[in-house]
C-alpha cells in the first residue's frame, strides 16, 4: 500500500514538474480553433481573418474546425470535452449564455476560461423583398393584425432568436420562429421569401442596395455611417441596443502560463490594422478586452442573458 502511495506521490510530483515545462514550450504544435457555426457564416467570417494574425503572434498554425449543429452546442460540447492544454480554442458569442438558459445544452460559459473579447456586431432587423412593408411602422401595424403569422428565420435559443424576441416584447407583437441555423441559410431563405424577417447585420448592405433585402432598423445607440438611412430602434421608440459579441475561450483547467501566452498573442493580433479592416467588411467593430477584463464582462453578460431569457419566457423552468 505504502509503495503504491509512494509511486502515486512520485507520479504527481513528476506531473507537477512536467506541467510548467509543457506550458513553457507552448505552443509546440498547431492549435485548433473550434468555430461552432458553418463555414461562411458570420462567426466564421470574423474568426477566419483573425486566425492568421493570431498565428503570426503565437508562432504555430491555427486550424479552424467548423463543428456545427444544434445552435452551436455540438461545438460547445466538443470544446468542453477537449483537453485543457491550450491546443483547443473555442470561438464563442453570446449564444453560449442563451442556449444554456434555453435548456438546449448543459454546457455553460463557466466551463471555460476567458482569453479575449474581439468584436461587436450590431444586429439589424431585416425583411424579405417579398414582404410589403417599407418601414418598421408598417410592419408593426401588420404584425398586430396577424399575431403569430409573420415568420422569422432564427437559430433557436440564440442571438438571432433573442433579438426579434426583444422587439416582440417592446412592440407588443408576436412572431413565428423557424429554425435556420447560421446567417448563410437564413439569407437563402429570406431572399427566396421563405421567411419574412430575420436578424442580420451590415454585411448584407450590398443586397439592400441591390433591392434584394430591406433593412428596417438597427439595434445600435446611433445610426451607422455605413447605412445612414436605417433608423435605430431607439428612434422608433424601443429601448433596444443589441450587438453580437465574439471572443475566444479555452476549456477550464488550461494552465495559467498557457492562457497568459494566448492572452498576449490575442492582444497583439487584435490590434493589427488588418483585423480592423477585415472587421469593417463584416459590419463589425473591433471591441477588444483582455482576459482579465473579459472574465467579469462574461459574468455580467450571463446575468443579463438570464434576465432577458426569463423575461421573454424563453428560459427553461
Amino acid at each position: 500500500m505504502r509503495t503504491v502511495l509512494r509511486i502515486l506521490a512520485a507520479t504527481a510530483a513528476l506531473a507537477a514538474m512536467a506541467m510548467p515545462a509543457a506550458a513553457q514550450n507552448y505552443p509546440e504544435r498547431p492549435i485548433k480553433m473550434i468555430v461552432p457555426w458553418a463555414a461562411g457564416g458570420d462567426t466564421d467570417n470574423i474568426f477566419r481573418p483573425f486566425a492568421p494574425l493570431l498565428q503570426k503572434h503565437i508562432g504555430q498554425p491555427i486550424v479552424i474546425a467548423n463543428v456545427t449543429g444544434a445552435s452551436g452546442t455540438v461545438g460547445a460540447r466538443e470544446a468542453k470535452g477537449s483537453p485543457p492544454d491550450g491546443y483547443t480554442l473555442y470561438a464563442v458569442h453570446d449564444y453560449i449564455h442563451l442556449v444554456h438558459y434555453a435548456g438546449v445544452t448543459d454546457v455553460k460559459y463557466s466551463d471555460f476560461e476567458p482569453i479575449c473579447l474581439l468584436s461587436a456586431t450590431p444586429s439589424v432587423l431585416t425583411a424579405s423583398p417579398k414582404t410589403p412593408w417599407k418601414s418598421w411602422a408598417e410592419l408593426a401595424e401588420d404584425a398586430k393584425k396577424r399575431p403569430g403569422q409573420i415568420t422569422v428565420g432564427a437559430t433557436l435559443g440564440s442571438t438571432s432568436h433573442i433579438f426579434p424576441a426583444l422587439i416582440e416584447k417592446a412592440a407588443g407583437v408576436k412572431f413565428k420562429y423557424v429554425s435556420y441555423e447560421g446567417l448563410a441559410p437564413r439569407m437563402n431563405a429570406i431572399l427566396g421569401g421563405h421567411v419574412d424577417l430575420t436578424d442580420s447585420n451590415l454585411t448584407q448592405k450590398g443586397k439592400v442596395d441591390a433591392g434584394q433585402l430591406k433593412f428596417l432598423a438597427i439595434a445600435a445607440e446611433k445610426r451607422d455611417p455605413e447605412a445612414p438611412d436605417v433608423p435605430t430602434l431607439k428612434e422608433l421608440g424601443m429601448d433596444i441596443v443589441y450587438a453580437v459579441l465574439r471572443g475566444l475561450i479555452v476549456p477550464k483547467g488550461t494552465p495559467a502560463a498557457v492562457r497568459a501566452k494566448l492572452d498576449e498573442a490575442c492582444g497583439k493580433a487584435a490590434k493589427e490594422p488588418e483585423f480592423a479592416d477585415a472587421m469593417k467588411k463584416q459590419g463589425t467593430r473591433v471591441s477588444y478586452l483582455n482576459a482579465a477584463e473579459y472574465g467579469p464582462f462574461l459574468d455580467k453578460l450571463d446575468r443579463e442573458s438570464k434576465v432577458i431569457m426569463t423575461e421573454l419566457g424563453l428560459a427553461k423552468q
Partner: peptide
C-alpha cells in the same frame, strides 16, 4: 444518431461522448 440538428436532443448516444456529436 447524435445530437438532433434543431433542438439539440441527444439521440441513440447511450450517454457516450464518442457518439454525442453523431
Amino acid at each position: 444518431i447524435g445530437t438532433d440538428p434543431i433542438g439539440s436532443v441527444p439521440r441513440f448516444t447511450f450517454g457516450s461522448e464518442f457518439i454525442s456529436g453523431g
